[in-house]
Amino acid sequence: MSALWMRQIGAVMRLELKRTAFSKRGWWIYCLAAAPVLISLMHWLMARRLSRNHTVGEDSVVFAAMFVWFFMRGSLFFGTMGLFSNLFRGEMLEKTLHYYFLTPIRRELLVAGKYAAGLAVSLALFIPSVALSFLLLGRHFGPAWTDYLTHGPGLSQLGSYVLVTTLACVGYGAVFLVCGQLTRNPMIAAAVVWVWEGLNPFLPSLLKKVSVVFYLRSLCPVEVPVPPPFSILAVETDPSPFWVAVPGLLTVALILLIYAAVSARQGEISYGE
């Protein structure tokens, strides 16, 4: 990749960061990222005052449930949807995409620059959110929590959650970038993806593997069972090994990005439609 290409990607990324990062429009995404941190903070402050009868292990299971049901199914999914589907569709609505198309830059680089900007913002929002939520949740245990982090499985668990968050941003980001580029209303595509991902625990083993959430859950350090009454419908499947889940997700994201780049190369704008 030539230096010119890198400079062009960097330029697109800088422009997109100015437009996307910390804009007023994305307030709800910031709320999604801040909400779990507030809950953990509240837990820390309240548990310090009132003596609660629970253990470090229980709190780590609670965080695992929070991560699966709130982060993965909620804030990461909708947050990346808001960020990435807006990259192309937002410009179509504002009728500004043709400015990019008129510049002497390859469309593939435009896609890469926009994706990199979206990824940077999503990682900057959600990795601190996950890390802070994890670290604050057990803070009230004091030295026991420090011991859990330094000598126990704490840091390794935190690393796994950060890895899953990163992969979620990469995977969902690629999915929603394509959705925003190809569909007039990315909501419809997002709703389909959301329902499909939600049905994942109940699908047969083969179909489970055609999703992002299956690989993400395989990488989570603590297993979270499906809550009743839906648990009777859940289908047990062996989790995907690390060496399949990580490269698999990255490959899927790469394929989607290549598809987005090819579509951008062949794309024509008609704001009137």
Binding site: R25, W28, L32, A65, M66, W69, G74, F78, M81
Partner: peptide
């Protein structure tokens, strides 16, 4: 932006449930 408004409907309904459970 229409898709964002639609997404917020889901967020308010489903994510608040997850938030409550959390």
């Amino acid at each position: 932006w229409k898709p964002a408004a639609g997404a917020l409907m889901f967020v308010l309904f489903f994510v608040t449930s997850a938030f409550a459970a959390t």
